[in-house]
Nucleic acid binder design. Sequence first.
DNA 1: ATCGGCTCGCGCAA
DNA 2: TGCGCGAAGCCGAT
Length: 466
Amino acid sequence: MIDPLRIRSLNDAPVRPDREWVLYWMVSSRRIGFNPALERAAAHARALKRPLLVLDAVECDYPWANARFHACAIGSLWDLAARFQSAGIAHYPYVEPEPGAARGLLAALAAQACVVVTDDSPAFFFPRSRAAAARRLDVALEAVDGVGLLPVRAAPRGFLRAVDFRRHLASALPTHLGRFPLADSLSEPLPRAPSLPAAVTARWPLARPGDPLPAVVDRSVAPVAWKPGETAAIRDLRSFVARLDDYTEDRRHPDREGTSRLSPALHWGHLSVHAIWAEIADRCGVDVVAGWEGLPEPHRNFLDELVTWRELTHNTAAFLPNYDAYDSLPWWALESSAKHAGDPRPYLYEVEDLETASTHDPVWNAAQRQLVAEGRIHNYLRMVWGKKVLEWSPSPEEGFRTLLHLNNRYAIDGRDPNSVGGIAWVFGRYDRPWGPERPIFGLIRYMSSEATVRKVKMKEYLRNHQ
DNA sequence: ATCGGCTCGCGCAA
DNA sequence: TGCGCGAAGCCGAT
């Protein structure tokens, strides 16, 4: 059974049992495994004895759209198309050829739907687009939260420190581990797939592999080697879990690639946290309901990153107003930064200097080059990368904006509560004051490129990104 | 190599 | 009201 705390009704319109199909408007959970929204839509279809239709649309003018992100979004269409076809589910892959072309498609499919189910997600443009749909549709619209192990909106409040969120997690998690979504949302038989309505496909033609990239999409950020889609994500997951024993030590060193690198798959919804925990639990021979307290240290460390930190940042996105704006940072950090607003900045860079990795600092330049070339920065260096932009910007507000810009434009896991959380941490969120009080930083935790080179193994990394 | 000090806010015990 | 302690650090003293 789907956890009722994951389901929200977004409008007052009724379920209309005499219509043609149940529509799943797939948005941020683009997967078949452990997808409570898809599971919910399938349950409606069985109860109403109607077929299931999945709308899987990629618009071309969402914020930060470019060729890199389009490749991520479109790549999963074909992975899903094959799997929906073999499950006998009608799948409507659509790639918008020009801005605004998709307008009306959801409504056209919803006009023949008994009920519409979509993904819940607290951030980016998703809340606005759901709200617009809720106003427009004449049929019940439900949002189902497949973000994490805990339903985001079931939290009693927003949490601003990991230690407090951990306490909440410890009390809430046992219940929710007992309400796992299905490993295969389509495991139970469904009514036969409808043929897609000709009047709709005539106006919004089905996407096909090899369709050209829409002309309007920004080509200046090129696709990267990361392979999108649930199938690839599960393969990557298994290979990571096999080397999890070394996680605690290896994740610190850029030369070792000990991190999971699963963050893009989580961001695009190609992989769920449930799938990751189930895979680890299975390999360790424990039941998912038992939790990970008894597992070895590397496993616990990874799950703390995956669950505590990831779900904390989603909690922040859902509960802290303007969570991605500078002035939502903690009071002590704003005050300390303000006190140092007049400090001289020995290095000041324009966004363009940063974007082209033209600073005096070889560590920072290497991280920025990795971001541009690969769409990611090694986790440890991502912190230093951020701290330096704080140091080299005319003001912390501008540094904050610059980091969001660089991250949203290049990172394949950007535009996500998690990466906003990482950037906000640079300016003090989730952290505490640290003496001694320094120029520019004030009491905000300081990091240096020089100490980083001493502490972590990154000779090859510096060679590879120059 | 390891250790303390730097500094603030919060939950909890008293 | 006091106490302990907290995402990833840094620096200097031992």
